[in-house]
Design a protein around this nucleic acid. Sequence first.
DNA 1: CAATATTTGGCAACCGGTTGACAAGAGGGG
DNA 2: CCCCTCTTGTCAACCGGTTGCCAAATATTG
Lengths: 345, 345
Amino acid sequence: MTSPGAATAPAKRGRGEKSSATIYDIAKLAGVNPSTVSRALSKPGRVSAKTQKIIEDAAAELNYQVNPFARALPTGRTQTIGLIVADITNPTFFDIIRGAETTGSARDYTLVLAESAESPETEVTAARRLLSTVDGLILASPRMDDDHIRALAADKPVAVINREIRGVPCVVPDVNKGISEAVRSLAANGHEKLAYVAGPKQSWMTARRWEGVKAACEWSKLDAVRLESSKPTVDGGRQVARDVLDSGATAVITYNDLLAIGLMQELQAGGMRVPDQISIVGFDDIFGADFTTPALTTVRSPLGECGTRAVTILLDMLQGHDAPDEAVRVETELVVRGSSGRLLA
Amino acid sequence: MTSPGAATAPAKRGRGEKSSATIYDIAKLAGVNPSTVSRALSKPGRVSAKTQKIIEDAAAELNYQVNPFARALPTGRTQTIGLIVADITNPTFFDIIRGAETTGSARDYTLVLAESAESPETEVTAARRLLSTVDGLILASPRMDDDHIRALAADKPVAVINREIRGVPCVVPDVNKGISEAVRSLAANGHEKLAYVAGPKQSWMTARRWEGVKAACEWSKLDAVRLESSKPTVDGGRQVARDVLDSGATAVITYNDLLAIGLMQELQAGGMRVPDQISIVGFDDIFGADFTTPALTTVRSPLGECGTRAVTILLDMLQGHDAPDEAVRVETELVVRGSSGRLLA
DNA sequence: CAATATTTGGCAACCGGTTGACAAGAGGGG
DNA sequence: CCCCTCTTGTCAACCGGTTGCCAAATATTG
């Protein structure tokens, strides 16, 4: 309003007429120096209680809000955290996103979202771009290689979900508990041969899960066979049905729920009865896993908790705490629904 | 490096050692003035081709990246758009988020996500907070009242999805086509009485859908009755099953797919056969709608497209285009799956 | 009550770009 | 050959906070 030259600047600035109040406005109103205002509003006990009050009142009156960019410029702090997911389409990530958003905004951090479309290159680009504008970065099921991730982590706090990388804070579901529950339950129900339908080769997790299945089967004296899927989707599940039947397995554990659902649909379409003739166990307990008939038995990974934990680690690091030097493990558990059960020979 | 006083500033800055290159570094390397660098890198033909080249090479060599905050400070442009959804839990929004993210990042905009947890107050707060840091804001199914939204829109470009507000650019699925297809199909299959299970009272959409159903039923000479649900979730669907049975309707259209799924589960649990005894049609075609048995017939709203369109409108406005003065309507269509069909008396 | 320790507030530089005003240099016309 | 116009680069102010350093004000202490 009082700004000179306002007449010569023809509505160029994008911020509406009433640019919001600055610390200079407050300073004028409160009769102090701008720097004092800045201190009153950020540093805790740096100014006297009296001045503090005056300034706060003035700020309230002008209904002041800090300009995040002005603050970010000299300090580098932005109050945002970035989250990169491999594929926004994939419901697995929904819970992670939700957990991260909720936890972040509870501590006054805003979530910035990007996706890599499953491409390592896109992922690196997106990560680089984000990294410069956020205080910390979360990579959920990253597709880029370890060294890239370490390079990012050298720059700013980074937390990784669903993958374990030495030297970088990680949050990883510990699949063993859930898997051994699943395998034990299948063994108890009379199954003797089990197939594992694997996921994408680049996925760190698919290897961990297969190891877990193999180990548990050995323990329970089950036969374990590994089958490959073309892609970790419902469609991929449909396509692998033939192989499953050919394998002679009567129980199947899949890399994820989508595969399980597709597989179940295809098998049922072919006249198989689930779980009477074949038991199916998925992974993750995604949204919709209980929509099927029978509802899907699955090893639940607490993905929302992964998001929450990752954010917490990040924010702690930002406050100067050390990163946990071991990967944080969250428990998985078997959720028994209708798709697994006694084998009726 | 050459900066004086570097010794006195003891590693305070949070940005790793090698703070990235600035236009000043480029200027030095290229032997020109920083402002020339700035112009070369942003304004199109403001500098000579020769200087342009020199500067670009220098920038490449230093592997320069603009500091978004430094740019945002004087210009107000941030290259980000905000998206506020009522509930991250709700799969309806997944597609919107995906559409918005994809479209935005294709045009070099980053998506900033916030949720309102279905609370109008939280929503207003989140919107205010976001508005100051983004170039434009998308409100998906906003819960706040019209005036609040208009106030936001007065400040910066705002686009609304799933609600129509005069004077604010909106993207709204036009439910009529999908609904009339649904009702006509039900009528053709021998149904004479239809129930509409409504959603939350504050939802603008639930009213539109009920109007559409009523009108289509009149046209097709069907009896239409409206039932209320406690909440628009699977659970809410289960709870309304009793009312549906009592109503005597043989066909049901629900406010959304979650209600439809819950309703179908409950009815089937009670021994009803779908669709032989009762047909069920949902709304939105969310992820998982085809996981059920039978798969859910539903009126698809192209939610991904809504996200895309909203972003497009916003970015166009940012480039100085006018906002469309009419709400943008996207088509809905009936997706026939197994849950609707001929009534077997 | 003077001398010293501690608060508290002000000054000014800085973060890294953008942009209006201007001057030097290049090119064109009479 | 001179004057005028157009291009191109430079200067300097500015966006809105933060923070090191210093001095004034106040509190503490002998």
